[in-house]
Design a protein around this nucleic acid. Structure first.
Length: 584
RNA sequence: CGGAGCGUAGCGCAGUUUGGUAGCGCACCUCGUUUGGGACGAGGGGGUCGGAGGUUCAAAUCCUCUCGCUCCGACCA
């Protein structure tokens, strides 16, 4: 491509609404354009990157017998009502009504449409297993879109769905896709880890899911990883043990102590001169199931060590409701409890009968803690869970970087990642709710098993930039660079200009993807643009040097290494360097 | 949805406190000189100051409402 005929504009200044490097660089390098919050145009230069990512995805999926198709972007409410997700998806789903009042949504994901399609076309186990995928626009009306295309509302996702007659077949395909994802992200030159994750509203209960996390400081996801055995999980899901702490082993009587105005763990700890982990944090959460008149509410009193935090994802999984939220101040008072002084001991009648009490398993059962006394300005000292309390025990706490691995006892670390892929063993959730069956070998109708496998194309581009840039700009891995070579022409002589055009044409004919900077601009500007855009190689034909030595300069963006090359050696040298950069 | 902040030319910003003919840098256009790390000179185009209403002789500036955007939080495959 010749820049004199191109549609490409770069920017010297950082737009003030971009905070992470990938977003800033994508805007500055003219890859994307913001249209509205969470809505972006992919400009020609950016689109080439996205298409290259898609190419790699297609190559690896086709290789394991996945078939590409497209489903409609706008889908009927009927489908979503069948599975129940018309209600549970909530405001994240962008809904529309057509001229005759029928309801639709812009698909946030496509389990329902694919299941509907499947049910109309597959009758027999002989047609299974099968894996179908598409790469299409999805829309999720995120409460807070941010970081450019990293968390956009409209985005392009590769979503694959597999169907199976039994769980073994599902596991087999899941494994194949898992490996294909590893090949995809390796091909793209990304450093990533695979972690255990929570399935959210996608799955029922404790179904198996894995996330592919590209390591990046600006990643929104927090991952807990064992430094020894390799265990890694999203913090939402992570199980880990606390490092040893010194508890108060004395088991005195339960003693009411005055703590005037002390409402926080910190304030109480300071006042009574105890460490935060020697008190118990009492949280009240409401879990609601169903909607409208059918809604049922359960209220839970959660006890955690004073310096631990609640993992709401774990809590939600435990309570099983559709929606959980901290109890409002008003609702707390209505139970006869007082914020800042809530505790598990001597609960008022009004609360006792309504509360489900749950202790976090990190709490030692036979040591003494300070807890709220359910009276304003008082706490209890000497609360011993097994002696004074009654309730369920469960894993509720949020893992921390100071923890130890649950299985091998080594220390864990917390790292940040960008979730570029997420794969799920869905099981029969959708085929059951939507009443889909196939005939098995015995001629009996059974609900097939499903898996689904997402991969964010735009997010992968952003993650690649997060991981590959420096102060001057992007440094594209060869596989996804919009072009291979930035060819800057620095000359005002017709003869050299003509030579530049010829070299450009030869390279293009030989299959090199060349961005030819034939603009009438100074060398400084061309070099700055080349660094900003970050193509793997930069070729310079300069009048001064060429007339002197008959050579061009070929420079690698990543290493900064450069070579003097004659026109004759050019093509083989470029091919060799690109091969090296690909790791061949 | 709660908290904070911002809307002035394509981008980055000043001007708003104290009302008085809308500015600067970059980018863009023309001519000339330049050509190895964002060149220089001269000339030029572009904004009903987010929108509506109000106060005033006079509003980017003061008041009311409204829309949009960003950040933090809550929420959320």
């Amino acid at each position: 491509m010749k820049l004199t005929k191109g549609f490409w504009q770069t920017y010297k200044e950082v737009p003030n609404d971009a905070v992470v490097p990938s977003h800033q660089l994508m805007l500055r390098a003219g890859l994307i354009h913001r249209s509205a919050t969470g809505l972006y145009s992919d400009l020609p230069m950016g689109l080439r990157v996205l298409q290259k990512i898609e190419q790699v995805v297609r190559r690896e999926l086709n290789r394991i017998d996945c078939y590409e198709l497209t489903l409609p972007v706008v889908t009927s409410a009927e489908l979503w009502k069948q599975s129940g997700r018309w209600a549970t998806f909530g405001n994240e789903m962008l809904r529309l009504t057509d001229r005759s009042g029928r309801e639709f949504c812009i698909s946030p994901t496509c389990e329902e449409p694919i299941v509907a399609l499947f049910s109309k076309t597959v009758r027999s186990y002989k047609q299974l297993p099968v894996t179908l995928y598409q790469i299409r626009t999805k829309f999720r009306d995120e409460i807070r879109p941010r970081y450019g295309v990293m968390r956009a509302r409209e985005f392009n996702m590769k979503d694959a769905y597999s169907f199976h007659i039994d769980p073994d077949s599902l596991r087999e395909t899941y494994q194949e896709i898992y490996q294909a994802y590893e090949r995809i992200f390796n091909s793209l030159g990304l450093e990533f880890i695979v972690v255990e994750a929570d399935g959210g509203t996608m799955v029922d209960g404790d179904a198996k899911t894995h996330e592919f996390q590209v390591l990046a400081n600006s990643g929104e996801d927090r991952v807990i990883r064992c430094t020894s055995c390799g265990y890694a999980a999203n913090i939402e899901k992570a199980k880990s043990k606390r490092s040893n702490v010194e508890f108060d082993q004395s088991q005195q009587e339960l003693e009411l102590v005055s703590t005037p105005g002390r409402q926080t763990i910190e304030a109480v700890g300071e006042y009574l001169k105890i460490k935060p982990e020697c008190s118990l944090k009492s949280l009240l959460y409401s879990s609601v199931s169903g909607t409208g008149a059918d809604a049922t509410e359960e209220i839970a009193l959660l006890l955690l060590l004073g310096d631990d935090e609640l993992n709401e994802i774990k809590l939600k999984a435990l309570l099983g409701g559709d929606h959980i939220a901290p109890l409002s101040d008003g609702a707390i008072e209505a139970l006869g409890l007082h914020k800042g002084y809530i505790g598990p001991a001597q609960l008022p009648e009004s609360a006792q009968s309504r509360l489900r009490v749950i202790f976090d398993i990190a709490i030692e059962k036979d040591v003494s803690y300070v807890v709220g006394a359910n009276q304003v300005d008082y706490h209890f000292r000497g609360y011993v869970p097994t002696r004074d309390g009654e309730g369920q025990w469960a894993d509720l706490r949020l893992a921390r970087s100071s923890d130890r691995c649950d299985s091998c006892d080594h220390s864990v670390e917390e790292i940040c990642g960008v979730e570029v892929g997420h794969i799920f063993e869905l099981g029969q959730k959708y085929t059951e709710s939507m009443g889909v069956t196939v005939l098995n070998q015995q001629g009996k109708a059974v609900n097939p098993y499903m898996g689904c496998y997402g991969l964010g194309v735009g997010r992968t581009m952003a993650a690649a930039i997060e991981q590959n840039h420096d102060q001057h700009g992007i440094i594209w891995p060869v596989e996804i660079a919009p072009y291979h070579l930035y060819f800057a022409l620095i000359s005002k002589s017709d003869e050299i200009n003509q030579l530049g055009v010829e070299i450009y044409q030869q390279l293009v004919d030989a299959g090199v993807e060349v961005l030819f900077d034939d603009r009438k601009a100074g060398p400084g500007m061309k070099f700055k643009d080349a660094d900003l855009l970050g193509l793997p190689l930069r070729l310079v034909l300069g009048e001064r040097d060429y007339k002197e030595s008959g050579k061009l300069e070929l420079r690698q963006r990543k290493s900064g290494q450069s070579l003097e090359v004659s026109p004759k050696e050019l093509l083989p040298t470029i091919k060799r360097l690109l091969g090296e950069l690909r790791g061949e």
